[in-house]
Simulated assay, not measured.
Amino acid sequence: MSDSTKTVILHGGLLALLFLLQFLLPAYHHGNLARIMVLATFAMGYNVMFGYTGLLSLGHALFFAAGMYGMGLAMQYAGAGPVLAMSAGLVASIVVALVVGLLALRTAGVGFMIVTLMFAQAGYLIILYYGAWTRGDEGLVMPQALRMLGAIDFSQPGPRYFAALGLFATGFLLTLWMMRSPFGKVLIAIRENEERARMLGYDVFRYKLAAVVISGTLCGLAGAAYGLLFGYVGATFASVQYSIFPLLWVLLGGAGTVIGPLIGTLFMFYLIDLSSAVTSAYMLVAGVVLVLLTLFAPQGLAGELRARVWRGLP
């Protein structure tokens, strides 16, 4: 069986399984999986920059929050419906990603990490400073009446799940196509040896900027969808922890793999969820498991699968 056939079976089968789970899961896990798919899209956006291009960012909460607040403010103060509100979130995330990319890519390595972190912290402080509009830490609750598209109510479990699945499938297939295209192969070449890619005639800055914008846009769409589907927009989503989470999800699942972000997000979500039901020291449990995974599966879960079972895993 060829690698292309295996890829179609694996990735198509995963989407089919997620579709079927809508009808099989109990209410609690049904809601959890919808949330996981949105957050996995956030992680996929991060993976484009870190896993495929080799740009380690500590500021991706800024893109997530840009999409979320672009959507939320348009809905709260302009009375926009889901389509216009999501469009506002999309535009906000593209603009923020473009500005951050143009400025942050003037640095490299540790400098890039610090600059992206500074941008994210600036975004968080802006949200708090303009608390009269954003409600600061209290956040904005999205009116249920505005979360409807015709007869479709995104506050209800079924429409919310299918919307989350649609978002995830779009990001999933886009990432798969992109990384098998010439553009994606150039990003991987930059990750592996930037100087050699430059010597071959590629405009490295332009490709990196494109990766930042695509990454920021995917993360912003995830943020906008999270606010729309779960009805809340808050400053917590712009804080440092939401810049660290996608890094952990990608590392756990397997950086530079298409399915890695979903695996990492699913694993981390339920690790915390299950351990918190047993002990109040659930973060200690999570920390121990993360250390063990780092020691014994340094390439992440999907990365180990690629290294040990299927070297052609995209």
Rank of each mutant, 00 (worst) to 15 (best):
L73D: 09
L149Q: 04
L103A: 11
P157W: 12
A122G: 06
L84I: 02
I94H: 04
A80V: 02
I126T: 05
V95A: 10
L140G: 07
G81D: 06
A61M: 13
I152C: 04
V110Y: 05
L140C: 14
F112V: 01
F63D: 06
V100S: 02
L128C: 09
V48L: 14
A74Y: 08
T116Y: 02
S155I: 11
M49F: 08
G150E: 11
A132C: 03
A78F: 01
M49L: 09
P82T: 02
L103M: 09
T107Y: 10
V110W: 02
A78Q: 04
T53L: 15
R147H: 02
L146F: 03
M86R: 05
M49E: 09
A122S: 01
L90D: 08
F162R: 09
L117K: 02
D137I: 14
M113H: 03
S155F: 10
A163W: 14
H60N: 13
L56Y: 07
A66F: 03
E138A: 15
S155D: 06
W133K: 13
Y161D: 14
M142H: 03
G101K: 11
Q121R: 14
L84K: 03
P157N: 01
G70I: 07
G54H: 01
I94G: 10
Y129S: 11
M68T: 01
G109L: 14
V100G: 05
G45M: 10
R160W: 06
I127T: 04
L62C: 01
Y124L: 15
R106S: 09
Y130T: 11
G158D: 13
Q144L: 11
G89A: 11
L149H: 04
V96G: 02
V115P: 00
F64N: 13
T116I: 09
A74I: 04
G54Y: 12
M71D: 03
M71P: 12
S57I: 11
D153S: 08
A65K: 14
T134G: 05
V115A: 05
Q144C: 04
G81H: 10
P143M: 06
L103Y: 04
G158E: 08
T53I: 00
Y129R: 08
I152W: 02
A120R: 04
L102D: 03
T53C: 13
A78P: 00
Q76M: 08
L128Q: 08
V91K: 04
G136T: 00
F50C: 14
L98W: 09
P82M: 14
V95D: 02
L125P: 03
I127D: 13
D153Y: 07
Y69T: 02
I127W: 13
Y124Q: 09
G72T: 04
L58F: 03
M148N: 02
V115F: 00
G81Q: 06
L56S: 06
V48A: 10
I114W: 00
Y124T: 15
G59P: 05
A104S: 11
A108S: 13
A88R: 12
Q144R: 07
